[in-house]
């Protein structure tokens, strides 16, 4: 039973096609990592799937109740405190102020955000704290689907790992399904049930690999070996570290 289904989705910016013929589905409670080389349209795809953008072609079918999203940057409201930022989705849905604050505090607790910092503004928080707020904001409305758009790219290795653990724990506790875009295969192999590889030019999904075991229960060694075997022996991942020269030049 799939909760998110993309059928023949395509998108283009100013006549340049960035996505074409994308078919994918995510099952209930399943975390799917979407990987692909830089500039292949991963980000566009997740924005289309989350309804931030309308696709030019194809259909997006959503069978979940509500979704949250974590972006590449924290994208916090600079004028609102951490607490108000976390509560922002509840404000959109029209919840009362008192209840909002209560739910936001609970969400902050789940991502181990210090209670004492809830009254601070984003400018007063470190990058890792800001991203924690962004994750809490995505979790606050208790969504059954989450979109992640390379959320931890800007963080250092240790913090990245900590954030990945937060997401893994949250997904096990809340059983949400997720579409997790990343260019980091280790991250994908730690977090996901299944890895989808996007075509180099965004023309369809090149292929998928199902991972053994449950996220969070995998040994670091096993994760590392899986990724090595993908990179060395699997033709599907051959172009994963290519760089789109049109963007670089």
């Amino acid at each position: 039973m799939s909760v998110l289904q993309l059928r023949d989705v395509g998108h283009s910016y100013f006549g340049r096609t960035v996505l074409d013929g994308i078919d994918l589905s995510v099952a209930r409670g399943e975390v799917v990592a979407l990987v692909g080389p830089s500039g292949c349209g991963k980000s566009t795809l997740v924005h289309v799937a989350a309804g931030v953008m309308e696709p030019r072609r194809g259909r997006v079918e959503r069978a979940y109740a509500r979704h949250g999203m974590v972006f590449q940057g924290p994208r916090l409201l600079p004028w609102a405190t951490a607490l108000d930022n976390i509560a922002y989705p509840l404000r959109i849905s029209g919840m009362r102020r008192g209840e909002r604050a209560q739910r936001a505090r609970a969400a902050a607790e789940r991502v181990a955000f210090d209670r004492a910092d809830l009254g601070k503004f984003p400018v007063e928080l470190s990058g890792g704290m800001q991203q924690r707020v962004a994750i809490a904001r995505a979790l606050v409305a208790e969504p059954d689907f989450l979109f992640f758009d390379e959320p931890f790219t800007a963080l250092d290795a240790a913090l990245k790992r900590r954030m990945q653990d937060l997401v893994i724990d949250a997904s096990r506790a809340a059983h949400f399904a997720a579409l997790f875009v990343t260019h980091d295969l280790i991250e994908a192999a730690r977090i996901a049930h299944r890895i989808l590889v996007l075509d180099v030019a965004g023309r369809g999904v090149a292929g998928e690999r199902r991972l053994d075991g449950e996220p969070g229960a995998r040994e670091d060694r096993a994760v590392f070996e899986t990724v090595q075997s993908f990179l060395k022996g699997d033709p599907l991942f051959r172009h994963i570290h290519d760089v789109d020269e049109r963007r670089v030049a």
Binding site: H47, A50, G51, V52, R66, H67, G68, M69, F71, G73, R75, L77, Y88, P89, I92, S93, R137, A141, F147
Partner: peptide, 10 residues
């Protein structure tokens, strides 16, 4: 980008 964020949250 904040507009997009708000749109993502409905």
């Amino acid at each position: 980008s904040l507009d997009d964020m708000a749109r993502a949250f409905g």
